[in-house]
Every structure is written in structure tokens, then in C-alpha cells.
Amino acid sequence: MSERRQDYKRHGSRYKARMRAVDILFEAESRDVDPVAIIDDRHKLARDTNPIVAPVAEYTETIINGVAVELDTLDVFLAEHIAETWTLGRLPSVDRAILRVASWEMIYNTDVPVTTAIVEAVEIASQYSGDKSSAYINATLDAMASKVETLRERAANPEAVLAEASESFDDAPVAPWDDSDALDDSDEDFESVDAAEVFEAEETVEVSEVAEDSEVSKVSEEKADES
């Protein structure tokens, strides 16, 4: 009983909102659509007489809108902190989504403690990816946290950030576990969770199930067991 209670506290409403934001950002990149448009679609579907999708939490929408507006600046900051070892564009799409959510919180939402943003991002990575992803996501966000005040000051002038950015990070080394010559981001798989199943499950989750605090990741696991 006490263990379940602790788990509930750790995985509260904001943790779930972050997870769904990651799901939506991944879906948007995979389908090459605006994540804000996906939010609008979810709102419409959730208002149907017999809704087949969960309503989007307010904080999920806040994250998505924030990341959509500040995406270019966020990507510059992320690329600066991982370019010596990896290339942002060659990371698995889900890892990019996790990094974007966490970095947006760290830089633009000062109501969220920096440590909380990092810890929750690493835990989401442990569920959606694997140990390698958790490790470099933790390292990248820690590096950003060490200079978060400077990043916040720079973020106040996004035009200057983009003007100072390198023209290309294509020559930076790729992720050490990527031995392909031409990896297509759309073909990247989660190491432990199939993203397609996550989104398919989201479309069929009933509002009543969400009210009982069911998580998208749990739904995808149950779907995988049935198959």
C-alpha cells in the first residue's frame, strides 16, 4: 500500500502531462505535422458525445505550445550541449522530444525546479528508451543546468541566439550506438516501448480510464501483452 502511494506521488499529474507532451511531440515529428494542431484535434475528439481519446491536460498543452514557439532556440541550446559527442538530428526522435520538454521547462518555466525537470525527464527516458538514453539525457540536461541562468538570458533574445548558431551540426559525431550510414529518424524504434503502440493506445483510451489515473505507457504495455 505505502509503495503504491509513493509511486502515485512521484507520478503525479505533471509527470503524466510531461509524458503525454513527449508522446505528442514524437507523433508530430513522425507525421511531420504541427504539434499544436494535434492538441486541437485531441480537444475536438475529447468533446465528442462518445469520446475515444483522453482530454489533454492543461499543462501538456502549455508545454506543447511553449516548445512549438521556442523550438529553434531550444534546439540550438541542445545542440550546443551534445554536439561534442552526438548530433541532435541523429538521436532517436523520442529522445529529442524528452530533451525538448525538459529544456523548455528548465529555461522558460521557472516555476518548475530545474532538478525536477531533469529527474522526471530521465525517468521518462527510462520508460520509453533505455539506459543509454537515460545516461546521455541526464548528462546533457545537467550540463545545461550548470549554466541555466545564462541560457535564460540568451533565450530572451532568440534572434541573437539563432544568428550566433553554427550553420550546421552535420559534421559532429553521431550517437555512439548508431552504426548506420543513413539513418532515417522516422524508422527509429524505442528500445523498450513501441511508439506506434503508444499513440494507437492513446486514440482508444476512454475518458473514464484516464480519470482513474491510467497512463499511456501502461496502456501500451497491456496492448502489447494482448498481442
Rank of each mutant, 00 (worst) to 15 (best):
G130P: 02
A37D: 14
D40K: 15
V207C: 02
A102S: 14
E222A: 07
T115V: 11
S166H: 12
V216E: 04
A160R: 14
E27T: 13
A156S: 13
E215L: 13
G130Q: 06
R5M: 07
F169P: 02
A21Q: 09
D142M: 11
I64H: 03
P51M: 03
D181G: 09
V22Q: 01
L45S: 04
V148P: 01
E203W: 08
S227P: 00
E149S: 11
N157V: 08
V148R: 10
E188C: 03
T62Y: 09
M19K: 12
P113S: 10
D225A: 12
S192Y: 03
F199N: 05
D225K: 11
L25N: 07
I137Y: 06
V36T: 15
D170H: 06
W177D: 03
L78K: 04
D23Y: 15
L141C: 05
A201K: 03
S30D: 11
A211N: 14
I38N: 00
M144A: 02
S2M: 12
H81G: 02
V22Y: 04
V114A: 01
A17E: 14
S30E: 09
I38T: 10
A46C: 04
T116A: 12
E206C: 03
R14D: 10
E206Q: 13
T87P: 01
P51S: 03
D41I: 08
A21E: 10
T150Q: 15
I52K: 01
S220N: 00
W177I: 01
A165G: 05
A79D: 09
I137V: 13
L99P: 02
G89L: 07
E164P: 00
N50H: 10
V22I: 12
Y128H: 13
D23A: 15
A165F: 03
A196E: 15
D187H: 09
T204E: 14
D189A: 13
P113N: 11
